[in-house]
Amino acid sequence: MRFPLLQPRWIGIHLAAVVVAVSCFGLGYWQYVRAQEPSREVITNPLQDLDEAARLTAVLTPGEYMPDDDANRAVTATGTYDADARRLAPALSPDGDEGYYVVFPLVTGDGVAVAVNRGWIRAEDIDRVDELPAPPEGKVTVTGWLRPPQTAEDGYVPLTVPKGQIDRISPAVLVNEWPYRLYEGYLTMAEQDPADPPAAASAPHTEVIPPPSPPTEIIWNWRSLSYAAQWVIFGIAAIVFWISLMRRENGSGRPGGEAPEDRVGDEESDAQRSAAAAS
């Protein structure tokens, strides 16, 4: 046949090669776009204005999963502090100084509580933590920002976790510390009614640290970027294999670039010339 690459079986091979190549490059582009999106551990929601705070019970249900979209949402919670259940969680200040978050459970209902981060103290004040003013007694309304459970990568990891401390603010950790059913997230306090009682001038004080603002630059997800490169390589390999098959079919891959039919004709001509010479 004059055009072997247009035979029905080759048309099927052409279509399959095009589909495979286009699919690989399309998946590579999709992974490239995903590589420019933050991973699930990165919070992209801006801090909501406290004037727009909603009731915690309208946002979350105790024990249920906290959606990522609720991170940095302004909420209010009303309850009573369990002053005897204070825990300290290691944390870095915005300037990178080591210290601790002071965390209390705010009991909002029968056997239900939310962890409240009431502020940050310096690491050198850890021995004077008992001098901190106790939280107000009775009903308290706390307004702040809802935060997802901390992971092991948040803050810094202490060498040891003494009694009265936790390695991170997470219900998975606090459920073993407090006898309450907990909300999935925790509350970073911004305002409180009534306010804390005044502390002695010489006593250490807690510093309210709002959650960090979400990043505005592109945060490359290197895993997705590597997947994008792999898909592109697969697409190139499919094209190379396709071209190799066509070259083999046309005989361009043989020595001298001769097609099989040309070589057969040359062999017959040589045989005829040999026979003529012998006669």
Results as ranks from 00 to 15, higher is better:
residue 1 M to L: 07
residue 3 F to A: 11
residue 7 Q to L: 10
residue 9 R to C: 05
residue 9 R to A: 13
residue 10 W to C: 00
residue 12 G to V: 12
residue 14 H to T: 09
residue 14 H to E: 07
residue 15 L to G: 10
residue 17 A to I: 01
residue 18 V to C: 12
residue 19 V to D: 01
residue 21 A to W: 09
residue 25 F to Y: 15
residue 25 F to R: 02
residue 26 G to M: 08
residue 27 L to M: 15
residue 29 Y to M: 12
residue 29 Y to W: 13
residue 32 Y to Q: 09
residue 33 V to W: 00
residue 35 A to V: 03
residue 35 A to I: 00
residue 40 R to N: 11
residue 40 R to K: 09
residue 43 I to V: 15
residue 44 T to N: 04
residue 45 N to Y: 01
residue 46 P to L: 06
residue 47 L to R: 05
residue 48 Q to W: 02
residue 52 E to R: 13
residue 53 A to C: 06
residue 53 A to H: 03
residue 55 R to T: 12
residue 58 A to L: 02
residue 63 G to Q: 10
residue 64 E to D: 13
residue 66 M to V: 04
residue 70 D to Q: 13
residue 72 N to A: 10
residue 74 A to V: 02
residue 76 T to G: 05
residue 76 T to V: 07
residue 76 T to K: 04
residue 77 A to Y: 08
residue 78 T to G: 05
residue 87 R to G: 07
residue 88 L to W: 00
residue 93 S to G: 06
residue 95 D to P: 05
residue 96 G to P: 06
residue 98 E to G: 06
residue 99 G to Q: 05
residue 101 Y to V: 03
residue 116 V to K: 02
residue 117 N to I: 03
residue 118 R to W: 01
residue 125 D to M: 11
residue 128 R to A: 10
residue 130 D to Q: 14
residue 133 P to I: 05
residue 134 A to C: 04
residue 139 K to N: 11
residue 140 V to E: 03
residue 142 V to H: 02
residue 144 G to C: 08
residue 147 R to D: 02
residue 150 Q to G: 06
residue 152 A to D: 14
residue 165 Q to D: 09
residue 166 I to E: 03
residue 166 I to T: 08
residue 167 D to A: 14
residue 168 R to W: 00
residue 170 S to N: 15
residue 171 P to L: 07
residue 172 A to Y: 05
residue 173 V to G: 00
residue 173 V to H: 06
residue 173 V to D: 04
residue 175 V to I: 13
residue 177 E to K: 12
residue 178 W to C: 02
residue 179 P to W: 08
residue 180 Y to I: 09
residue 186 Y to V: 02
residue 198 P to R: 07
residue 198 P to Y: 10
residue 200 A to I: 00
residue 205 H to Y: 10
residue 206 T to A: 12
residue 207 E to R: 14
residue 210 P to Y: 07
residue 210 P to F: 05
residue 211 P to E: 06
residue 211 P to H: 05
residue 213 S to D: 15
residue 224 S to G: 04
residue 224 S to C: 10
residue 226 S to P: 01
residue 229 A to N: 02
residue 229 A to K: 02
residue 231 W to V: 00
residue 231 W to T: 04
residue 234 F to R: 05
residue 234 F to L: 12
residue 235 G to T: 03
residue 236 I to L: 15
residue 236 I to Q: 02
residue 240 V to S: 13
residue 242 W to I: 01
residue 244 S to L: 09
residue 246 M to I: 06
residue 248 R to M: 08
residue 252 S to V: 11
residue 253 G to V: 11
residue 253 G to P: 01
residue 255 P to N: 11
residue 258 E to H: 15
residue 258 E to P: 01
residue 263 R to F: 05
residue 264 V to P: 03
residue 264 V to A: 15
residue 267 E to L: 15
residue 268 E to P: 01
residue 269 S to H: 14
residue 271 A to W: 07
residue 272 Q to T: 13
residue 273 R to V: 12
residue 274 S to F: 08
residue 278 A to G: 10
residue 278 A to V: 10
residue 279 S to N: 13
